[in-house]
């Protein structure tokens, strides 16, 4: 499992092992300031990073920074 979330300290406290920091609390995988195409590209980047996290061996809690 990979956890995509904005407030990383909470994710660390609840015990997620693979963590990908997100954009903002009300829109973790989007940015309403961008146009639709750019926003989807941004979302894709985050999902790609999450897939990479899933394919990475970890031996404890790991935050996959930008």
């Amino acid at each position: 499992m990979v956890h995509i979330c904005t407030v990383v300290p909470i994710s660390l406290t609840v015990g997620a092992n693979r963590i990908v920091p997100a954009i903002a609390i009300p829109h973790p995988l989007g940015n309403p300031k961008l146009d639709k195409k750019e926003e989807k590209a941004l979302r894709r980047q985050l999902v790609e990073k999450s897939l990479k996290a899933l394919q990475t061996e970890v031996d404890g809690q790991t935050v996959f920074e930008c």
Binding site: P26, L29, G30, P32, E39, K40, R43, L46, V47
Partner: peptide, 14 residues
């Protein structure tokens, strides 16, 4: 933002 485009929370489109 989530109501406007729920993919912003759950990335089904991508």
């Amino acid at each position: 933002y989530a109501n406007d485009d729920p993919d912003r929370v759950l990335p089904v489109d991508v």
